[in-house]
Design a protein around this nucleic acid. Sequence first.
DNA 1: TAATATATGGATATGAAGGTCTTTTTATCA
DNA 2: TGATAAAAAGACCTTCATATCCATATATTA
Lengths: 149, 149
Amino acid sequence: MMLSKETGYVVRLLVYLREQDAPVPVREVARVLGIPPSFLAKLVQRAARRGWVITRKGPGGGMMLGVNPSELRLMEIVETLEGRVLEQCVLGLPECGGENPCPLHDQWMPVRDAMLGLFSRTTVSDLKGETLPGMKEKDQTSHKKEDSP
Amino acid sequence: MMLSKETGYVVRLLVYLREQDAPVPVREVARVLGIPPSFLAKLVQRAARRGWVITRKGPGGGMMLGVNPSELRLMEIVETLEGRVLEQCVLGLPECGGENPCPLHDQWMPVRDAMLGLFSRTTVSDLKGETLPGMKEKDQTSHKKEDSP
DNA sequence: TAATATATGGATATGAAGGTCTTTTTATCA
DNA sequence: TGATAAAAAGACCTTCATATCCATATATTA
């Protein structure tokens, strides 16, 4: 894959939370997005420390988006979670650069720049909502639990 | 990084061997390319089984390129060593596709296609030789050992 | 205040990638 | 033909991403 599991999960989490207007518990987000619940709990902790989500304990608690989605860029998420992986040499040559290019350097640059451009310009609010069970893009009936209808 | 260490090492290995006209032992390639020798030995074994390199045991032995470099595409190397990683969803969504796109799908497609195109069209002979100690691009004086001048 | 629902934090497991080491096999050549 | 130089093979180690589990803290509501 191109990005780590954590990055993928977090991006999808933020897109999901964008559509919610009340706290959603980890368990439910995990179910809807198909993420291992205990792992998601970990990711939410880290995301909360960074302010990307806000959590609330106790009954009725859960998580909410903690940032303006139009102000959080994919680039920031990727670099926070994985470092500057997008800038690194595609062949792993540590000193790869203009003066000491790797064998693929020249051909790779345009592709890399396209990637950097995309991640730099795209914010969480630019992302399409996922169509998943329990997650309606327009007709959002919040996060009512289907085991208590 | 974009590709696995193994892929990066193997690509650089093949580019290096392209310029050699006599068998080069693992130890020497490892030194020139800055690859851990015992790890390179393992990669060479695998590359040899696939025919990418030819090895010869005993004194004067070593490895040589086993394929026509203009007939080995980067795509084949990457897919052989890592599977179809380039085709996978950038956010890791297993069912991501036209009918069930991930949040980044539409924006990602052009970038992915540029990548696929580059890897599909580029062969080992299209890659620039590395400029490293002991490796002269034009003035190739073979691989004479500098400890026996 | 008791019961419950939720996140928090830390320890631990798991699997794959990356890397090392040692022994065996095979070839060369003096 | 023997000494030596190399690859081959396989066991082992290390690190890291990806989880999993459990005990604890905290908030809500009946």
